[in-house]
Design a protein around this nucleic acid. Structure first.
Length: 281
DNA sequence: ATTGGGACCTGCTCGC
DNA sequence: TGCGAGCAGGTCCCAA
């Protein structure tokens, strides 16, 4: 499940390889069952023809979204959804199954968007839209930005009665966290995923922000988490490394690394939450 | 306004 | 061995 560290890893790999490259053509392979990868754009043909001939000037990231800035002022935005992979390779290689979108570059390389579960999304915003829709996805603050502080977090938690994990998963509150890193950050800060969000003390909010930042930075250093299903890979198809360092995520019944109690699971906001029932209160 | 749950998807695992 | 049920979850949408 690509979350902030996985998307950032992909961005860092991609930027030096494709910045300055010219797009020859963008292709959507035929899919008899239909594919809705292009979102909020009225015409598929127009979407594709607008990209042909453009040069990618830089590759950015906002939360879990990859931003490809184009030389005409537009920006191509990709979200990997649940199962999305972006694979960079020579065009001569045989096409992967579940390929939803292919960006072919002048010179022969291509970037393949492979996405079995079809939750991935592609957007094309114009310069004018960028001006007016500064934040088209209503995303909250980036947790790794300097301006992201405990008081900022506490402000957004105040009065909220929902479980803290559900609130952290809300991209309007803080942008870029998913199921893996909310579990890991809550474990590190000793807070139960079920705690009412508004009940966190200032000290707990401080610890939580510190844990969120630490776990995200470590995961980026490890090039992301390839969990049990191995759905996340880097642009070269390599696995990440942070799965070796997970304390609680996908470790039910295994001993808590801090106290040895068996890791428990529960259901929060429709997802499985993993936590230590002794350390996290 | 906030919160919970279903829909969207497909591949995989599990139990019978 | 085969089959269906259940599960995985990021985001959107609707209802309470």
């Amino acid at each position: 499940m690509p979350e902030l560290p996985e998307v950032e890893t992909i961005r860092r790999e991609l930027a030096p390889r494709i910045a300055g490259k010219k797009i020859k053509r963008v292709v959507i392979p035929p899919d008899p069952r239909g594919c809705r990868v292009i979102r909020r754009y009225p015409c598929r043909r127009r979407f594709l023809s607008r990209l042909a001939g453009r040069t990618i000037t830089s590759v950015g990231r906002r939360a879990k979204y990859l931003l490809f800035d184009l030389d005409d002022g537009r920006v191509l935005i990709l979200h990997l959804g649940m199962s999305g992979q972006l694979l960079f390779r020579p065009r001569s290689a045989p096409r992967f199954s579940h390929t939803r979108l292919v960006i072919r570059f002048a010179g022969g390389d291509e970037l393949c968007f492979v996405d079995p579960r079809k939750f991935g999304e592609a957007y094309l915003f114009s310069a004018a839209e960028e001006d007016t829709l500064v934040n088209p996805f209503a995303l909250g603050p980036e947790p790794l930005d300097r301006g992201y502080t405990a008081s900022r977090l506490r402000e957004s938690l105040s009065g909220r009665k929902g479980p803290i994990k559900a609130v952290l998963l809300d991209q309007k509150v803080v942008a870029g966290l998913g199921n893996i890193y909310t579990d890991e950050a809550l474990f590190r800060s000793g807070i139960s995923p079920l705690r009412p969000a508004g009940s966190l003390s200032g000290e707990e909010a401080r610890k939580l922000v510190k844990s969120i930042r630490e776990v995200l930075r470590e995961a980026i250093r490890c090039r992301g988490t390839s969990a049990a299903d191995r759905q996340y890979v880097t642009t070269a198809g390599a696995l990440g490394g942070f799965q070796e360092r997970l304390d609680v995520y996908q470790r039910p019944d295994r001993p808590c690394p801090r106290c040895g109690a068996p890791i428990a699971t529960t259901r929060v906001a429709g997802r499985t939450a993993h936590f230590c029932p002794r350390c996290q209160v």
